[in-house]
């Protein structure tokens, strides 16, 4: 398994959108390398014929009916917003397009 370098951690941090100080990158690289080394064994204990369990209990087909419920009250919606304007959430300029 590949070792995690500070550069790898920086790439992952960018993907996870977290600013990390250079010292944090160094420290995390060391810690995560140890964790990854410890947990990497999982791939060796399972074979292809073992199905994955993504839900602990075998429930299927849980639906709600298409019936309108009241909206959150308008005053509650923006109450916790860091910034708002004209009934909308105000966010800094968006550089990237999605």
């Amino acid at each position: 398994m590949p070792a995690l370098s500070p550069d790898d951690v920086a790439r992952l941090a960018a993907l996870a959108r977290i600013d990390l100080e250079p010292a944090e990158l160094e420290r995390l690289a060391g810690e995560l390398d140890a964790v990854v080394a410890a947990v990497a064994s999982v791939s060796s204990v399972v074979s292809d014929d073992v199905p994955a369990t993504s839900h602990p209990l075998p429930l299927v087909d849980v639906y709600r009916e298409d019936v309108v419920e009241p909206s959150l009250p308008a005053e509650d919606v923006l109450a916790g917003a860091p910034a708002a304007q004209d009934g909308r959430f105000l966010v800094p300029q968006i550089l990237e397009e999605d």
């Binding site: 941090a13 960018a14 996870a16 959108r17 977290i18 600013d19 990390l20 100080e21 944090e24 995390l28 810690e31 995560l32 964790v35 966010v91 800094p92 300029q93 968006i94 550089l95 990237e96």
Partner: peptide, 21 residues
């Protein structure tokens, strides 16, 4: 001050070391 950079700065400052890990 862009949305992208504010997100990253917020998460960098707002999360503790175990959460980041």
């Amino acid at each position: 001050v862009t949305a992208e950079r504010v997100m990253a700065a917020t998460r960098g400052a707002g999360f503790g070391p175990e959460v980041k890990r």
